[in-house]
């Protein structure tokens, strides 16, 4: 790809993004933004953190777009590689930072007709995600991509660079571990 992505600008001045590059960035976010956010949300405790890492992911992707080669794989795979690295960086940095969660689960979609049902659903999701957070990293990755991003097993295999059969095996194992954890906590 040889898009004139970011045209040179004097130091300190805003970058000049060409119209075609701007359109490509918009298309990338529209196609993959929600999946990336949902993947990150399965890993991170709040909407603010997920927004930060989503922003970081796409800013890095936009900045490096000239290095993306469609012949080597789908944009989705490339963007998710950046998302996984950004997440790792964020988690490493956050070890030395104090977390402040201000929004609870304001980003959780819910069709519940009453506030009580919504509250119960939020609590259940909280318990599920706590259990997901305790899974080994490899299992957590598969669960986040499959149920967070909503990918089928073929897409998960492509993003992780492993065989689809291996994804199924990991998924079964992860679900069994999750079930055991929830049972140990006395949850149905």
């Amino acid at each position: 790809m040889t898009l004139p992505f970011v045209q040179s600008a004097p130091p300190g001045a805003p970058s000049q993004v060409s119209p075609e590059a701007g359109a490509l960035c918009r298309a990338w976010y529209e196609q993959h933004g929600q999946a990336v956010y949902r993947y990150l949300r399965f890993h991170l405790p709040g909407a603010d953190a997920a927004e930060d890492v989503t922003s970081e992911t796409f800013l890095k992707a936009f900045q490096a777009a000239h290095r993306y080669d469609p012949a080597l794989g789908e944009a989705r795979t490339w963007i998710f590689r950046i998302a996984r690295n950004s997440l790792r960086d964020y988690l490493r940095r956050s070890r030395v930072r104090r977390h402040v969660s201000i929004g609870g689960m304001r980003d959780l979609a819910c069709q519940a007709p009453s506030p009580e049902e919504r509250l119960l659903w939020e609590e259940e999701v909280g318990r599920l995600l706590e259990a997901v957070a305790e899974l080994p990293e490899r299992d957590r990755e598969v669960v986040s991509l499959r149920y967070g991003s909503g990918f089928d097993t073929a897409a998960v295999a492509e993003v992780l660079g492993i065989k689809e059969a291996a994804v199924r095996t990991r998924l079964w194992r992860a679900l069994a571990r999750l079930r055991d954890q929830l049972t140990d906590r006395g949850e149905p």
Binding site: A9, A13, P14, S15, V17, G22, C25, R26, Y29, E30, G33, Q34, Y37, R38, R41, F42, A47, A50, E51, T54, S55, E56, F58, L59, K60, F62, Q63, D107, L108, A109, V125, L128, L129, Y147, G148
Partner: peptide, 23 residues
């Protein structure tokens, strides 16, 4: 379990990129 990012997040990220913010 379905999380929805803020509707304005995409426009915000594009705006930051166009201002030269690299994250």
């Amino acid at each position: 379990v379905q999380f929805e990012p803020r509707a304005s997040l995409g426009a915000e990220i594009l705006g930051r990129f166009q201002r030269g913010d690299t994250g």
